[in-house]
């Protein structure tokens, strides 16, 4: 299996509550026509711009919806993950509202499941995915389980509990399904990826705590391509790791962002910063000793990943790495 290569960077930072530009992007997914839907999470006391942004791979900004924060049907407080089902509906989890909201691909609100006051509320819903029959799989981080629902939201089954044994979870986060409907869960605080059948039977576990290849520190997201290669957002180590279908370490990505179209356009109208930037060395190799941690290295070195929170694979098997702390997406491909 050949290594994947960097292609391009999408997006730039904007703390505005409207328009293009990201502020703490958290997750993306693709509609059936290839548009990219992105959770713009915002944070702290500045949450006016929490919303979903829609744009293309070529960086054509299209629209936005769900601008919050709020508890109304169309709004979010702390959205976490999103996923399209086979009917081109996008499901978005909100870990504060403890529910999932469903929109069509035009951003029109359809329904919400599991509100706090409903009989079946969710305890910190995070990762979400769909099987080939459109069953819905949701991580409930605070309960330490994965819950399976029918396409119309009826409870089907649930597995897992808090713990560190196989099949148990410690604040799990991201979730994905492969083409065979196996379920992969980023078991965040257990520093591993767990694989299950779509009925919840434990199949395998990949990774242990650490910083070496094949080891993880707080993995937040997992994706699987058409060849079964496994991509892990190794969030706490500020990197992405690629595993073979058997879970063996294959490749490590540290990020190599370049200027996106939006970034380039902004810098062109701010020549003072652009000129100084051209004279600067933003890929730093020799940091003082006390800053030689993944976090500090990423915070000081612009091109590499900082907060790689989500990995997603599109229909062409391109890898999209969303970085919440650099407010952009880096794209990779095998071809």
């Amino acid at each position: 299996m050949s290594d994947i290569k960097y292609l391009k960077t999408i997006g730039f930072n904007s703390n505005q509550p409207i328009g293009r530009g990201f502020n703490y992007p958290y997750d993306i997914d693709f509609s059936s026509d290839g548009r990219i839907f992105l959770i713009n999470r915002m944070g702290g006391l500045n949450s006016r711009g929490v919303r979903i942004q829609v744009f293309t791979y070529e960086e054509e900004w299209l629209e936005e919806f769900g601008t919050g924060p709020g508890t109304e049907n169309e709004n979010f407080v702390t959205p976490v993950c999103l996923s399209f089902d086979g009917q081109n509906r996008v499901f978005i989890t909100d870990e504060y509202l403890n529910e999932r909201k469903i929109f069509d691909s035009k951003g029109t609100f359809l329904e919400r499941w599991g509100q706090n006051d409903s009989p079946r509320s969710f305890q910190g819903p995070a990762g979400i995915g769909h099987s080939s029959d459109d069953s819905v799989f949701v991580v409930e981080q605070y309960k330490g389980c994965v819950t399976k629902l029918s396409p119309s939201g009826e409870f089907l089954s649930s597995w897992g509990r808090e713990g560190a044994k196989p099949g148990e979870f410690n604040l799990p986060w991201g979730l994905t399904l492969d083409k065979d409907d196996n379920v992969f869960v980023a078991d965040w605080r257990n520093d591993r990826i767990q694989k299950f059948s779509c009925d919840g039977d434990f199949i395998d576990s990949y990774g242990i705590s650490g910083t070496k290849p094949g080891e993880f520190h707080r993995p937040s997201s997992v994706a699987v391509d058409s060849k079964g290669m496994i991509y892990v957002a190794d969030w706490g180590n500020e990197r992405v790791q690629i595993l073979t279908p058997d879970g063996e370490f294959h490749q490590l990505l540290r990020g190599e962002a370049t200027l996106s179209n939006w970034a380039e356009e902004w810098l062109e109208v701010n020549p003072d910063e652009y000129d100084l930037r051209k004279e600067s060395e933003l890929l730093v190799e020799n940091l003082p000793e006390h800053l030689q941690t993944p976090y500090h290295t990423s915070s000081q070195t612009e091109p590499i990943f900082w907060g790689p929170v989500s990995v997603k694979i599109d229909t062409d098997d391109k890898l999209f790495v969303t970085e919440h702390s650099r407010h952009r997406i880096q794209v990779y491909s095998r071809s």
Binding site: F12, S14, W266, L267, L276, S299, Q300, H327
Partner: peptide
């Protein structure tokens, strides 16, 4: 500081562009 001119200009302008703030080192 590394890239001092660029970093201080970003600070002076309270610039978060293009990819957020870059922390500084000696």
């Amino acid at each position: 500081v590394k890239n001092g001119e660029y970093m201080s200009t970003m600070g002076f302008k309270d610039s978060i562009w293009p990819y957020g703030r870059i922390q500084w080192h000696y």
